[in-house]
C-alpha cells in the first residue's frame, strides 16, 4: 500500500513537473522573443548603439535562463540558439546584411523550443 501511495505521488509529481517545465519554457522563450523584437525594431530605426546594448541584455538573459532550460531541452538545440544569439552583436557592429535573417532564425528556434514542449498529437506521434 505504501508503494502504491508513493507511485501515485510520483506520477502526480511528474505531471506537475512536466506542466511547470512547459509553462516555464514558454515564459522564457516569450521573454527572449520580446527582446529580439525590440532589437529588430531598434535596428530598423538605425539606432545601432541602442540595438547593441539590447543585444548584450539579450545575451545576459539567455545565459541566466539557459541554466534552467538545460535540464529539459536537448543540449545541441540550446547550443544552436546560443551560437545565433552570440552572432547578433557582431553582425550589428559590422552592419551585416544577414542580421534580419539571423533574428528570424533565432525566433524560429525559440518557437520550436516552445512547440516541442506542448503535448500535442503531432509531437506525440
Amino acid at each position: 500500500m505504501t508503494r502504491l501511495k508513493i507511485s501515485i505521488g510520483i506520477l502526480i509529481f511528474l505531471v506537475l513537473l512536466s506542466t511547470f517545465s512547459a509553462v516555464s519554457s514558454k515564459k522564457i522563450c516569450n521573454e527572449l522573443y520580446t527582446q529580439l523584437e525590440q532589437i529588430e525594431e531598434t535596428a530598423e530605426k538605425n539606432n545601432t548603439d541602442e540595438a547593441i546594448k539590447l543585444c548584450s541584455t539579450l545575451q545576459e538573459t539567455w545565459h541566466n535562463k539557459k541554466n534552467f532550460l538545460i535540464f529539459t531541452i536537448r543540449r545541441d538545440k540550446l547550443l544552436n540558439t546560443e551560437e545565433s544569439i552570440q552572432k547578433l552583436q557582431s553582425m550589428l557592429e559590422s552592419d551585416c546584411d544577414e542580421f534580419t535573417a539571423e533574428i528570424e532564425s533565432i525566433k524560429l528556434m525559440l518557437d520550436y523550443i516552445v512547440k516541442e514542449e506542448i503535448p500535442s498529437i503531432k509531437n506525440i506521434l
Binding site: 508503494r3 502504491l4 508513493i6 507511485s7 501515485i8 510520483i10 506520477l11 511528474l14 513537473l17 512536466s18 538545460i70 535540464f71 529539459t72 531541452i73 536537448r74 543540449r75 545541441d76
Partner: peptide, 25 residues
C-alpha cells in the same frame, strides 16, 4: 548521448515504475 538531459532518462523510468506498481495494485 550527452546531448540528452539526464532528466529525460530518469523521468520516464520513474513514470514506468509508478505505472507498474499501480497496475499491479
Amino acid at each position: 548521448n550527452e546531448n540528452i538531459p539526464i532528466l529525460m532518462g530518469i523521468l520516464p523510468i520513474l513514470a514506468l515504475i509508478s505505472f507498474e506498481v499501480i497496475i499491479s495494485a
